[in-house]
Computed example of a mutant assay.
Amino acid sequence: MTLATTNFDWVRQLVHRESAIVLQPGKEYLVEARLLPIARSMGLADVGKLVDAVRSRPDPDSTRRIVEALTTNETSWFRDGDPFTALTSTVLPSLVAARGPNEPLKIWSAACSSGQEPYTIAMLLEDALPSAATRVAITATDLSREMVERTRAGRFTQLEVNRGLPAPMLVRHFTRAGNEWEVAPALKRMVTASECNLAAPALPPMGPFDVVYLRNVLIYFDLSTKQAILRRVRAVMRPDGWLFLGAAETTLGVDDSWERVVIGRSSAYRPLKGA
């Protein structure tokens, strides 16, 4: 069944109001696919019936489920590779040299999805920094409550660990938990997960961060929202901090208060002094 234009427009407006994510015309198929499981769980025949029900009797839980279903949770271990190589080859040595030997290192994995990104960072730092267990604090946030809960649990299916996790790291940092794999307790202690809407008027109190991974997020927002998010991110970073964006994202032409730094085949961004 094709979603009626009025219902699709209502979903678009709801998602934009709650998350600032822009659903372009032509994404009806995505809305159908993502919302059909919710409709069926509520005993409704199709997505049109779901939208009609929520429009006539709105409640916070139903609207939250719709918005969360339409946020993209695509992720994998070491996604795109280069930003993580840059962390250990360049960023970490720079931070260790600039900080005192016991000064905490704070990293933010924004839009962490089900946890692969923050735990990738945790594994790399555990292997590269002898004091990582006591020195590194990784804040993992996501709009989706379900994704935050999954990150806290730190449990992954065999299919999920097969997506980019090297076998030696699986053996070193995970244990079997029934049919799943569970992150080692030392890594879990490094990661704190919580809900965060990046497009909200203000971020929750956190930071200041030495490194921020804000990858494959800005592409879903309009220009003014991208600018606002980058301003808020800069406000919770250390003056000499490092920002990693997705391969298709840049601050150039969006916010000129960042300096682009090429690291091997990757790029990072640093706050411009005095900006």
Rank of each mutant, 00 (worst) to 15 (best):
V11A: 00
R12I: 08
Q13V: 15
R17C: 08
R17D: 13
L23P: 10
Q24S: 15
G26W: 05
G26E: 06
K27Y: 05
A33W: 09
L36K: 06
A39R: 10
M42R: 15
L44Y: 06
A45C: 09
V47W: 06
V47G: 07
K49F: 05
L50Y: 01
L50I: 06
D52P: 09
S56H: 12
P58V: 09
T63H: 12
R65S: 05
V67Y: 02
V67I: 10
E68F: 00
E74K: 09
W77M: 06
R79D: 01
R79A: 00
D82K: 11
D82F: 04
T85I: 13
A86V: 02
T88H: 07
L92I: 05
L92V: 01
L92A: 00
P93E: 04
V96T: 11
A98M: 13
A98T: 12
G100S: 08
K106E: 10
I107F: 02
S109P: 00
A110N: 04
A110K: 00
C112E: 08
S113G: 04
G115W: 03
E117Y: 05
P118S: 04
Y119H: 02
A122N: 04
M123C: 12
L124H: 08
L125M: 11
A132H: 01
R135K: 12
R135H: 07
R135D: 03
A137T: 13
I138P: 02
A140P: 06
E146M: 07
V148S: 02
E149R: 12
T151P: 06
R152F: 03
F156D: 02
Q158K: 15
L159R: 14
R163Y: 12
L165W: 02
P166I: 01
P166W: 02
A167P: 01
L170M: 06
H173I: 13
F174T: 07
A177D: 15
A186R: 15
R189C: 06
V191I: 10
E195Q: 15
A200E: 04
P201E: 02
P201T: 01
M206S: 12
L214D: 00
R215A: 11
Y220K: 12
Y220D: 06
S224P: 10
T225V: 15
L230V: 09
R231L: 12
A235P: 07
A235T: 10
P239E: 04
G241T: 00
W242V: 05
F244A: 13
A247M: 14
E249I: 01
E249A: 01
T251I: 02
T251W: 03
S257A: 14
W258T: 09
R260C: 14
G264V: 03
S266H: 07
R270N: 03
L272F: 04
